[in-house]
Design a protein around this nucleic acid. Sequence first.
DNA 1: CGGCTTACTGAGAACCGTTGTCAAAACCAT
DNA 2: ATGGTTTTGACAACGGTTCTCAGTAAGCCG
Lengths: 134, 134
Amino acid sequence: MKRNTWQKEAVRSALGDAGGFVSAQALHASLRESGSTIALATVYRALTGLTDEGEADSLQQEGEVLYRACTPGTHHHHLICRRCGTTVEIEAQPVEEWARRTAAEHGFTRAEHVVDIFGVCARCSDLVDRASRP
Amino acid sequence: MKRNTWQKEAVRSALGDAGGFVSAQALHASLRESGSTIALATVYRALTGLTDEGEADSLQQEGEVLYRACTPGTHHHHLICRRCGTTVEIEAQPVEEWARRTAAEHGFTRAEHVVDIFGVCARCSDLVDRASRP
DNA sequence: CGGCTTACTGAGAACCGTTGTCAAAACCAT
DNA sequence: ATGGTTTTGACAACGGTTCTCAGTAAGCCG
Ligand SMILES: [Zn+2]
Ligand SMILES: [Zn+2]
Ligand SMILES: [Zn+2]
Ligand SMILES: [Zn+2]
């Protein structure tokens, strides 16, 4: 039987607070900073669990896996700030259809797709602009 | 000054022969099998170089980076067989526009996008079907 | 051609994110 | 409370990639 522990809850909650995509290590660090004694391996295990249960999405960037608390049960994509990780969930029916059609046209079966947009969010763009101007 | 070595040429050629996405380690293994004495680190260095010069595309899958010799100078996406790595380059103007518009709508700047379709190619689908049928 | 500079290579160590191991802790049905 | 079982924490191990550095060899110049 699956058990509930404060560690799992702490990870779920910290992931929610993060707002955007974060790495397991970053999440672990922020938990420790707020006084938690949770172990790194436990954070990894909790994140894997959340992902399996559909409560979190994950993606790979620069050799590490990033996680985010996402709306469960919905197929969606992401618009992610490269600077601060802030993320917007986006749906795009046209893209879904295009993907399905393209795969079929080339005889591919069991097709999945990866569609993500990386950019610099409004707030971060602002900060960059300000910094580069005297 | 940049120099030409048989090692770089060997990697370029092997990558071309591969046809689809392959890992640095797989490429190294296949080079050794065909008698080459090239070192693994050199394969990594050559692939990094080819990627920087736009002669190869790369993507991450399951914790490793895969490379492919791609049409240089063109923006395109990929339809990739999960089983054999066979890859088709695809262009999708509607998706390009959608990505640009979506980023702009949310105030994101310097937007890039990742759009790839993973599936099982016709040949591999065939093999799977045959195998699962008596 | 032969020498010289300097980029490149090979071998292995180091690195880093992640997963495995196992004894100790803690959850929870009874 | 008790006991069977899951989960945790500390640390070792792992796998892909990068770094280090001494030795090799491109390619320029005479
Ligand atoms: Zn931002
Ligand atoms: Zn989709
Ligand atoms: Zn295939
Ligand atoms: Zn595109």
